[in-house]
Design a protein around this nucleic acid. Structure first.
Lengths: 257, 257
DNA sequence: CCAAAAGTGTTGGAATTACACCCATGC
DNA sequence: GCATGGGTGTAATTCCAACACTTTTGG
């Protein structure tokens, strides 16, 4: 069988070209229609969803491996990517019927230990611009799509835990670093930015105070243009001042919270 | 040669019983005489120092592996231990002459790739009570001792980077979580606690404001006793209220900063 | 009795929160 | 013209930082 052969080949490839015992999992956050979203993959022939992941080549930095995996799943090149935790429990492989999966992949039972080892997995989270992503499944999956962060189903392995912790880390980061450069389009309105913050934090903020605060950090440039087409008063458009934005990222000032 | 044989045995042991490609490094902080200290190991027959580390057994949770390593190096059982970053650059193995090391260990050149692989390393930091530690070298080292955190020499691998980042993480943690339970003896004075904070933060704090703040969090219990024997006015002794302390740890309130 | 450390409260300023009115646009 | 959302400033409060005097103890 052609397919079976390909899987065997893949396993050999994994064993020879990649670091053993370590994998990478990515929580890719996007923002659309007032909702924070996460990109998930569905395993072939199943209803089982999981996070996109990858492995590390022998001569490759771990961060580069994460970027590479992300590129493959989203088509994006320059993305904000950050390690948030490394998961090393033996029991990570819950919610997963190995037998069943092997069956579906058309593999013999004894391929089991070749296929799913006990790995340590390094969790990264990424912030990407929703509209620019082209979700792309990999060899083992046949669907890749966005899920609302508050409607995630039961995932394979410990991937639900990963999303929870990634979100927690993101919220914390929001309190000492600016966020938005990687989640919003180039030009955006103040209400857009506020909605992003509110969505991530899960609470509403005062419009006027929020604006004062954001402008106070000097990371925003107001453009001459306004956003037209809305049913109401046209809001100004803003753009991030990349230089000051980077400076704020480095300084780790207290932001919101 | 007896020694050589033992090394070969160790390598076999590593390859069969432990996860490949993943290691653990621990930055163990202690506090003594107004100084923050880190526990370092010196490689046999060299002046090369490095952090204590370990590896993960196949059926062992990563956190347990870290605890086990720590137990072996310090003799301590219940320690505060926290993962802070995972280091995955290919160039982690700087400041390290493999040739030289193999020579000193009395191993042939071709043992090189068996011995030092390119690993991903998970960094943990620990907070321990200085007085209760019994520093213990391992097989590859013949000295284990405390170093002042601001007098660390050039270490093997990327271990200097690890200490810097561990300290940075510790300082950040100090701003949203209480610290002290694992670094101070059971009973301590307010000036003791303040000195700890000042040492970690690297800055002096106002005595009165500090006390107000700490008492405000309700994590301290003042005892009837006072610390006698000092040349001056006897300060009160305090003890952490474990329950409230744990609650504060979980709540992640804003503390100092 | 003097030096050195510890105990304790108050006050002023800065930062944060709360809050209200006017303006533009599409229907 | 009206409903909806966007733009803007001020007053009240809270939080934090600065600060000084008294007490105890050993020498």
């Amino acid at each position: 069988m052609e397919y079976k052969k390909k899987v065997q080949q893949l396993i050999v490839d994994l064993k020879t070209n990649y670091l053993l015992s370590v994998s990478i999992d990515c929580v890719i956050f996007g923002f659309h229609a007032g909702q924070l979203k996460v990109l998930l993959l569905r395993w072939k022939e199943t209803d089982d969803w999981c996070l996109p992941g990858g492995r590390i080549l022998h001569e490759e930095n771990m961060d580069e491996a994460a970027h590479r995996s992300l590129r493959e799943r989203t088509g994006l090149h320059e993305i904000f990517l950050q390690q948030f935790h490394t998961f090393g429990d033996v029991l990570r492989y819950k919610n997963f019927s190995q037998q069943e999966t092997l069956l579906k992949l058309g593999l013999p039972d004894d391929a089991l230990h070749e296929f799913i080892n006990r790995d340590v997995s390094v969790g990264y989270y990424a912030l990407v611009e929703f509209a620019e992503v082209t979700p792309t499944p990999d060899f083992f999956t046949d669907e890749c799509r966005w899920w609302d962060v508050d409607q995630i189903p039961l995932l394979l392995f410990d991937h639900n835990d990963m999303i929870v912790l990634a979100l927690k880390t993101l919220r914390r980061q929001l309190t000492y670093q600016p966020i938005g450069y990687n989640l919003l389009p180039d030009k955006f309105t103040m209400p857009d930015l506020q909605q992003l913050y509110e969505t991530i934090l899960g609470q509403s903020l005062d419009r006027r105070n929020f604006q004062k605060r954001m402008l106070g950090y000097g990371i925003l440039e107001r453009l001459e243009e306004r956003k037209t087409g809305g049913a109401h008063k046209a809001p100004y458009l803003y753009r991030f001042n990349k230089e000051n934005y980077e400076k704020a990222l480095a300084d780790e000032i207290l932001f919101v919270g």
